[in-house]
Simulated scan of single mutants.
Amino acid sequence: MTTSSAVPLTGLPFPDAEYGRRQQKVFEAIERAGLDALVVTAHGHLQYLTGYDGRGAYFMPFPLILVPGQRPMFVIREYELGSVRSSSSVQEILTYNDQYGFAPVCADAIRRSNLRGGRIGLELGCWNIAPADASALQAQLPDVNFADATRLVATVAAVKTELELEAMRFAMAMTDVAVKTFQQSLREGITEAELAANIDWEVEKAGGLLRASSTTLLFGERTKLSHGSPKRHPINNNEPAFTELGGLKDGYACGLVRSAVLGRHPETELLHDLSMEVLEAVISAIKPGATAGEVDAAGREVLKRHGRPELLNHRVGYQTGINWGERGNISLEPGATDILAPNMTMHMPIILRGESGYLFGTSEHVVVTDQGAEILSRTPHTLYFA
């Protein structure tokens, strides 16, 4: 049963039992890691484990204290109590009033859990816990041994449930609507901002949303930027166009990179041809048991064969799910030892940098299957000519 709320348009997107399963998997991971407890502060991980998106936690951390064998406990700013209660599966909530109250209240909760002298994990490599926060907590609990547990929740969350995959498939359907609109709206003189408005309108008509803060849409010389929000900049004939965007469903975003040329543009056309070859090698390397580093190497080998390894100056992909920009997730990069497993989801943006500075390419978003990789998008990753 999905928990609802008396406040309109609030409540949990998934049944309580789904959050219980996720929490149990994290409890098991805590024990495997030799920890007595975990203090979760990353917004994406809070949303994954409780349903609450962490928006009010910019003020100070909202630690979720997880102790195997005990009920999860949220420590939050009192001002946000209504929001947390209406959108979280956690029932036990403690509050503090200001930034100076965070550490004492959190420390008291840890003492209540009989964790004196224990080993407790903190997400030190993630967003939303500052060095001062960790220091204040350590000062309150001098007998506790804090350890870095940045990867713990991310590793559990890497493998998706069917409910999560259902949300991601819907998000990708909205991404495909956005890409189709991007392609069909290209004409000489239209601005990035005008095309972005077209995309928003068509996605809304389809019943979806975009993850607006991550949308990149660039025309012409502006495709030399690594990221950029749409501006009142028009596209001219014989210029490239580039977008990276993602549909959003219940916090799950499915990103995609697609490129186009209005007329012809030989330099970016060549970059795109190479990016497709790299992408297809990466997808072919994805299978259960492969390491993240092996997948990255498969893509780089293509550029080595062409004598152009310098065109790719970033990783070939990364784990996806709740919160596109969370730190601590699996990264498809040189030497990475994470092992891929079925139902992991990955985004592989293969964006190459040309001699003139253009950043151009394509991507796919996949689910790891027993046989290899399933591509979620229904929009071909070929270059679109308008």
Rank of each mutant, 00 (worst) to 15 (best):
G125F: 09
G69L: 14
C106G: 03
V203C: 07
G321W: 05
E301K: 10
E221T: 14
L209N: 11
R211A: 14
D370N: 13
A167T: 07
C254Y: 05
A290E: 14
A6W: 15
G372A: 15
Y52F: 12
V367T: 15
L279G: 04
S135I: 01
A206T: 02
V153D: 02
H347Y: 09
L195Q: 06
T362G: 06
H365A: 14
E277W: 04
Y96V: 02
V179F: 01
L94G: 02
L124M: 08
E301H: 08
L270V: 05
F242S: 11
L12A: 00
S87Y: 04
N237I: 15
R327V: 00
E239A: 11
Q319H: 00
M172V: 02
Q70I: 02
V302Q: 10
L376P: 02
Q99W: 00
S213H: 14
S185H: 06
K287C: 13
M344Y: 04
F14E: 15
T382I: 06
I283A: 04
P104I: 01
Q47A: 12
D148E: 01
A134R: 06
I76P: 10
G220S: 06
V40W: 03
R327E: 01
I351C: 05
L332N: 09
L312C: 12
V179Y: 04
G20K: 07
L81I: 10
Y100A: 01
P63W: 02
T268Y: 03
V159P: 01
Y358S: 10
I286L: 09
L124P: 03
I330P: 04
E294L: 13
E280V: 05
F59L: 01
T3L: 14
L81H: 04
R55N: 12
G289I: 11
V177Q: 10
P142S: 05
V84F: 07
L210G: 12
I30W: 01
R305C: 08
V156M: 12
E294D: 15
V368T: 13
H233I: 04
V367E: 15
R258Y: 02
A178L: 10
C254W: 03
R264P: 01
F219N: 03
